[in-house]
């Protein structure tokens, strides 16, 4: 009983500053939108956004689904290829020097300019979205993994080699597990990029999706619907982020127990 109370207290202690701040911002926005005389087609009040969110829920859900599918497939492609490439560059050092400049250049491309081109080349289907998401999330994933491998304790590697382990065994037994915390850090960062990337891709042309929904709402002078869609995308991002946190906890029990033991 007392343990659960303290858990609740701890939780409240963690969340109250942010919740209070957000509540204050929303309240100020509501007051300003209602009493300053600004038109709802310029700045809708939060209550109006919520109202529209509810009444347009079926349409929003219908458009959220393609965004979620694009995000999930693009992100899966990105994580898989980052994993494959990270192992390659870990074993073949010259490859690392060849590939990293290319990857860094790929990160300097402005998404605003690239997204319409990718849509132009690959059409309105799923493929350009997957490619754009992979473009923005691949590099952070790759860098996290490579950093993770390099963080391996040198004594641990020495110990394994003294036991007769070759490069493959040293990688599997020491370098790969050492990278797990780094992998999850990369995962948390890039999952947020992934949703933004999906919406950008849809914004540049799509049959359905939150991005194209926002664009048409904007063109119809409906900022309330734009914000309702923004709310949806933020919610999707938070859920995905939460999933990575849960996944990290489940797959790294040795880290979690450290906190619990105290």
């Amino acid at each position: 009983m007392s343990a659960s109370t303290t858990a609740l207290q701890r939780w409240w202690h963690a969340v109250w500053p942010a919740s209070t701040l957000i509540a204050a911002i929303v309240l100020a926005w509501e007051v300003y939108a209602r009493f300053s005389g600004v038109k709802p087609t310029t700045l809708p009040s939060p209550s109006r956004v919520v109202e529209q969110l509810i009444s347009n829920a079926p349409a929003l859900a219908d458009n959220a689904l393609p965004t979620i599918i694009a995000t999930a497939s693009g992100f899966a492609l990105s994580v898989t290829s980052a994993f494959v490439f990270s192992i390659l560059v870990d074993f073949v050092r010259p490859l690392r020097r060849a590939l990293f400049p290319v990857f860094i250049i790929s990160q300097t491309l402005p998404l605003v300019a690239i997204a319409p081109l990718v849509v132009l080349w690959f059409g309105f289907g799923l493929l350009p979205k997957i490619l754009l998401i992979a473009l923005v999330t691949f590099f952070p994933m790759m860098v996290s993994l490579v950093q993770g491998y390099d963080s391996t304790d040198k004594d641990m590697e020495w110990l394994l080699r003294s036991m007769g382990a070759g490069r493959r065994k040293v990688f599997l037994l020491a370098r790969l597990p050492s990278a797990i915390p780094y992998f999850f850090t990369g995962l948390r960062i890039s999952i947020t990029y992934a949703v933004v990337g999906a919406i950008f891709a849809e914004y540049s042309g799509a049959a359905k999706g939150l991005g194209i929904y926002m664009l048409s709402a904007k063109n119809n002078f409906r900022p309330d619907l734009v914000l309702a869609a923004v709310f949806c995308s933020a919610f999707i991002t938070l859920v995905l982020f939460g999933m990575t946190v849960v996944l990290e906890r489940v797959s790294t029990p040795w880290v979690r127990r450290e906190g619990e033991a105290q």
Binding site: M156, M163, W254
Partner: peptide, 18 residues
């Protein structure tokens, strides 16, 4: 070169946390 004569105990314990 690759000897199997020695068992090494490094300076830090080098236990694998996972």
């Amino acid at each position: 070169d690759a000897s199997d004569k020695f068992a090494l105990m490094p300076q830090k314990d080098a236990l694998m946390p996972w």
